[in-house]
Simulated assay, not measured.
Amino acid sequence: MQANPYGLESLWIQGDLITKGVTTILVVMSIASWYVIVTKALQLLSYRRASHAAGHAFWDTTNLTEGVATLGTNNPFSDIAHAGITAMRHHAAHKGHLHDQLLVSDWVTMSLRQAIDETSGKLQAGMAVLASVGSTAPFVGLLGTVWGIYHALVSIGTSGQASIDKVAGPVGEALIMTALGLAVAIPATFGYNALVRSNKSTIAKLNKFGFDLHALFITGARSCSTEIVGDNGAKIVAVRST
């Protein structure tokens, strides 16, 4: 079976240094973006399981030790719970040094906030790669497109005629470069948008869990919000403990 003279294999064999360089860059960008997409998706999937435990199983236990055990390990919800427990123990152990400077509520709040911020930083790791690939890959492909069109014009100029056999190869090279740039940029862009939405949802759940933990450590009960409609129709959010 005869190989396609205008396929990817022929493009690589017949291409010059710039063509091969552009193709290599696009392949590397594609591998990097897919690596980030897959690893972040698996990370968010494990966080989703942990968030379910933090919203249900944790609060169905009879004591804090059992509750922390339901969260598992190596997830932000477990890290936040341990951060709160450590903060409470540290404040109690150094009460004589800390009570005049910082209330236990403020100390726990800062510890929980620091744990949430660390998780937020981990969630953002790799997102810059997707943003960069999604915004630059089309232009990298465009460079290959312009170079292919240049080759087509050179072929026309050297041959003196614009026959199809003279321009088909370079024009095909240009179109392939355009397609490669889009094939790299589109998944990176969609992946970035999907991961941003998932990250926001995860951070919102972390903040909610941290707020409930703060109430548990300070008051001994989980806080729950209830909407009450006033006489003027306005909604008032009341916080109660359970």
Rank of each mutant, 00 (worst) to 15 (best):
V68P: 03
S135F: 01
I116M: 15
W147C: 08
H82R: 08
G160N: 09
A93L: 11
W107Y: 15
R113C: 05
R113A: 11
I116K: 15
T136W: 00
G144T: 04
P138E: 05
F58N: 15
M88G: 06
T65N: 15
A83F: 01
T109Y: 08
G169C: 04
H99E: 15
A41E: 07
T158R: 11
S132N: 07
F139H: 08
A93T: 10
H99I: 11
S120M: 10
E66C: 07
A83D: 03
G55D: 10
I149T: 09
A50N: 07
G134C: 07
D79W: 00
H91Y: 10
M177I: 01
K40A: 06
R89Y: 00
L102M: 14
D165P: 00
K40Q: 07
E66S: 14
M110C: 11
A115D: 12
F58E: 15
S155L: 00
F77Q: 04
A93S: 12
T65L: 12
S105C: 05
H52P: 03
Q124L: 12
G84N: 02
L45T: 10
S155A: 15
P138M: 09
H97R: 09
N74L: 05
M88S: 10
G126T: 06
M127S: 04
V68I: 15
W147S: 13
L103F: 02
L102H: 11
H90T: 11
T39R: 12
L143S: 04
T136C: 09
G157W: 00
I156K: 02
P76C: 00
R49Y: 09
R89N: 08
T109M: 06
A87G: 05
F58Y: 14
S163C: 00
N63H: 08
R113E: 11
Y47M: 15
S159D: 08
K122D: 15
G160K: 06
L130S: 13
W147L: 11
Q124G: 13
S163D: 11
S105G: 10
G67Y: 04
L112M: 12
H91V: 02
D165Y: 00
P138Q: 08
I149W: 03
V140A: 03
L71G: 09
